[in-house]
Amino acid sequence: MAITTQGHLKMKNWLIGIIKEGQYTMGGVKYKTPIYKTDLTGDVATIYLYLDDSVSGTITKFELIDQDGATFDDQPDNINKPNINGLLISFKYTLKKL
């Protein structure tokens, strides 16, 4: 038996709901940041983090932190972010119903 359409939607909502906040590493220090936006489109669940122009420096990692305070996902990176622009980061997950 296959998962229902409603069950598939619940799984995508669960995925987004388990994430509490974002985190980025700059200069070896970890900083928390709130979830900026989430999106459910088709089979794709996307979680966005946004760093405004008050943040500047070299960012070496972005993370999603779950409700238990553990790292759910991370993206190593090396971005030199100036203080004149914002920066939008996305974590995308595809949950296909087969």
Rank of each mutant, 00 (worst) to 15 (best):
F72D: 11
P34W: 09
D73M: 13
D77W: 08
D74Q: 14
L49Y: 10
Y48I: 02
K32E: 14
T38Q: 07
I35K: 01
M26D: 01
Y50Q: 13
N13E: 15
G69P: 07
D53E: 12
I35S: 05
F91A: 00
V44D: 00
K32H: 07
G86F: 07
K10T: 15
N80Q: 09
Y48L: 06
D68Y: 14
Y48M: 09
L95E: 09
T60P: 03
G17Q: 10
D53M: 06
L51K: 02
Y48Q: 07
I79P: 06
D74K: 11
K32C: 05
G57M: 10
T94D: 11
S90I: 05
Y48N: 06
W14F: 13
V55F: 03
D53N: 13
Y36H: 13
K61L: 12
V44E: 09
K12A: 10
T33A: 14
K32L: 09
P82D: 15
E63K: 12
D39K: 13
T46K: 09
D66V: 07
Y93L: 04
F62R: 00
A45T: 01
T4E: 03
Y50P: 09
T71I: 15
D43V: 03
G42V: 02
L49I: 13
N80A: 14
F72K: 12
P76F: 02
Y93A: 05
P82S: 14
T5E: 14
D52M: 01
I47C: 02
T41D: 12
Y36P: 10
A45Y: 03
T71K: 11
I65L: 02
T71C: 05
T33D: 10
T25H: 02
D73H: 10
P82E: 08
I35D: 03
T5R: 08
D52P: 00
M11V: 14
P34Y: 05
Q6S: 15
G69R: 12
W14V: 07
L87R: 10
D74P: 00
T60F: 04
N13L: 14
K97Y: 05
K10F: 10
G17L: 06
D68L: 11
K20T: 03
D52N: 12
A70P: 00
I59K: 05
I16D: 08
I59H: 04
I84D: 15
I65M: 04
T60D: 02
I47L: 12
L15P: 01
